[in-house]
């Protein structure tokens, strides 16, 4: 494999890791506050559809982004209502949210565009264009560093840079602010937070809201940057891979980035090479598809360091009277 191929594979790794990373950080906020969320997939899907639909109709990608985030926030609100206010089963709620999005997006897409559950393809103004970093052109001829800078790091959409900037921001918010301390506490020991006179319900809704925002960005990225428009079920299990990455990273932001890049690399390799020859053994492409899930099961099984979820995760909080 020559150097240019390597750069290209890594470049598509970054593109493919971005939606995973945004969704993974979304799940991180929610689960750190004690609300399991298996509905990341659904929120991304809804955001992908509404961002593409609004961008297609108005021709303005920013309005599309806004609509995508709004739709994701609505689903977050439903999940919060079910799992925080009515203390329902968070897993069932997450599943229902995903199904709701899977059905709704196609029903509405068919009604609005009559193209078999997809949106029209987005033209240039309906998509997020590449951002060229300063001097990308000038240094492109420098050996090794040139291609790395101009091909690999430069020329992505703004949401890619936003996703990677969200990693230190998440770390700072969770570990260096009062809000972050409280948010982590509410996922471990809500009674203590309540005793300190801080609203458990308020904190959890805030976390679920941040989760909705980030899922919205992830979905909008899928439909307006990675691809040009919405097609039925376009998230293709990415919400669940993000969930896997979250467990793989043991609910920590920097590790989440590592896990998402790893899973992004697996997708990029599977996309570029169908079957891989390794020392006489052929690794089928299906193995690459299944690897994120297999790795997650191995991690969950605790054979490679134990993944311990936030202690109060999945448990509705009942205030004592």
């Amino acid at each position: 494999m020559d150097f240019l191929t390597l750069i290209q594979v890594l470049d598509s790794t970054i593109r493919l890791a971005t939606p995973l990373l945004l969704a993974c950080l979304a799940g991180l906020f929610s689960e750190r506050a004690g609300i399991f969320d298996i509905g990341l997939e659904g929120k991304m899907l809804a955001a992908a559809f509404f961002s593409a639909a609004v961008a297609a109709v108005t021709g303005n990608v920013w309005l599309g982004l806004l609509a995508g985030v709004a739709s994701s926030l609505v689903l977050s609100g439903i999940h919060g209502l079910a799992s925080i206010t009515f203390r329902g089963n968070q897993l069932i709620s997450g599943l229902a949210v995903t199904m709701l999005a899977q059905g709704f997006t196609v029903v509405i897409a068919q009604r609005w565009f009559q193209q078999g559950g997809r949106t029209p393809s987005l033209l240039t103004e309906g998509r997020f264009g590449p951002i060229n970093l300063p001097f990308a052109e000038a240094v492109s001829d420098v050996p090794v560093f040139g291609p790395i800078y101009s091909e690999l790091l430069s020329g992505h959409s703004i949401l890619v840079y936003l996703a990677f900037a969200a990693v230190p921001a998440t770390w700072w918010l969770l570990y260096r602010t009062r809000f972050g301390l409280r948010l982590r506490a509410v996922g471990e020991n809500p009674e203590a937070v309540d005793t300190a006179g801080i609203s458990v319900v308020g904190l959890r809704f805030a976390a679920v809201g941040i989760c909705g925002l980030l899922c919205g960005l992830a979905g909008a990225y899928l439909a307006t940057s990675l691809q040009a428009g919405f097609v039925k079920d376009m998230t293709a299990g990415r919400g669940y891979i993000a969930l896997a990455a979250l467990i793989f990273a043991k609910w920590r932001p920097w590790h989440a980035m590592g896990a998402c890049l790893l899973f992004g690399l697996l997708q990029a390799v599977a996309l570029r090479f169908q079957n891989i020859e390794l020392g006489g053994i052929t690794i089928p492409v299906q193995m690459m598809d299944a690897l994120p899930y297999i790795l997650t099961v191995v991690i969950l099984a605790g054979f490679v360091g134990k993944a311990i979820p936030p202690k109060a995760g999945g448990e509705p909080y009942v205030k004592e009277r």
Partner: peptide
């Protein structure tokens, strides 16, 4: 009709939501 098949998925999601997650409501 013009109602796509995915309408069933919506109904199914609503049933799961109301009978499962929003039971307390």
């Amino acid at each position: 009709t013009k109602i796509p098949r995915e309408m069933i998925v919506v109904i199914q999601a609503l049933v799961i939501m109301f009978t499962g997650a929003l039971d307390n409501m």
